[in-house]
Nucleic acid binder design. Sequence first.
DNA 1: TCCAGTTTGGTGACAATATCACTGAAGTGC
DNA 2: GCACTTCAGTGATATTGTCACCAAACTGGA
Lengths: 221, 221
Amino acid sequence: MGIGDWTERFQGTAALPRTVRDRLLDSARTVRLQAGKTVFGPDNIPDNLLFLVDGTIRVSQSSESGRDIVLYRVEAGESCVLTTACMLAEEAYNAEGTAETDVVAVILPRPAFDRLVAEEPAFRSFVFAAYSRRLIDLLRVVDDVAFGRIDVRLAERLIALAGNNTQISATHQQLASELGTAREVISRVLQDFSKRGLIQQTRGHIILKELEGLRAIADST
Amino acid sequence: MGIGDWTERFQGTAALPRTVRDRLLDSARTVRLQAGKTVFGPDNIPDNLLFLVDGTIRVSQSSESGRDIVLYRVEAGESCVLTTACMLAEEAYNAEGTAETDVVAVILPRPAFDRLVAEEPAFRSFVFAAYSRRLIDLLRVVDDVAFGRIDVRLAERLIALAGNNTQISATHQQLASELGTAREVISRVLQDFSKRGLIQQTRGHIILKELEGLRAIADST
DNA sequence: TCCAGTTTGGTGACAATATCACTGAAGTGC
DNA sequence: GCACTTCAGTGATATTGTCACCAAACTGGA
């Protein structure tokens, strides 16, 4: 994908028109990140806004005790507003963004960001929509963690992670970090799923055998 | 407090200067709400932005099973950005805002909001700071719910609710709805606090007796 | 002042989830 | 093949949530 095409992918409520795209690219710089690299975090506060052109950034939060939970993922065409929140935040927080795949992103320095927000209504809408989207995402996380059952959440996540495939490459520890729980809990629930014939497990891999059965669990309650 | 003075109270990272204040008031309308009224919710989506002049709005989320959790409170001088998120959201959400006290607020219609954001950098900063603040608030909620112990969270909340006093008027059910847990859980923890001499209870009221002891619990882990 | 109805809080039994302390099995790199 | 690491399984126990009650404390008439 050429760099000139990337804003085509900004889907959603506020796709950016050509003029805005051009102006954005004028002030922006493209960066590439390897999978696994930390994009931002408590020790690594960015001073500019990030727009994802290609790849996925996983935003997660860590507890003192070492447990993690995934808050949301930033996909191609979206911006990572938490970085701006981090810029403005005085308070402590412990969210961090990790490149889940190799990532291509456009970096927009703060002054250029301010100017675009001021002068381009379409860009403004885009940014506000991005913020709103993340707020809603976090509401969902709170709802899940506070009120959701772990088997339901795991079934949901397995289906989501599989995408169009029926295979997932993930350790129990990684799944635990998705949901903010402990490895042992995941092991036990997966074992239950196995015994019911819903999945098959090998070290580091899960095969979804009965998608309908998993969906039934994911949709319950 | 006269209406002309209210923006004086917009403290924080981006207090609004006089010119912005004047422009804001030109397009705005003041409303008053009784304590207990619903400010916004799934059935009651606002089409304008709200700035709190006086009072407190409690923003909480409800589960299907009837349990609640408080996400954050909007205090005088802050804006309620979740209303804008609600405007833009297509997805379902179940957060709602309730006037916790009698409330005075300024309502800013969408077009005026857009214009101010475009033309007043100070206003823009204020709005972005408000969004960031809420994102950070929600990160804290996620952290608490996913990783926090209930006794620690309750001790924290008791101290916060008491403010400068040592008295709280709240039922166990209300405290459970603060933390997103069940009444029985609160009853048991409070009973434990009582037995340890940290608090005294009467129907609907709690007196904090050993603030230091409570702080020790709140600060643990 | 008494009584019925409502709200609030207490309790035991049990279910779900988290923590801890292990064990062994499966992969990895000499 | 052998040490070494990573990954998964398991029992015991602690914490939290759910359910089904009961009793005490308030409320508002009659």
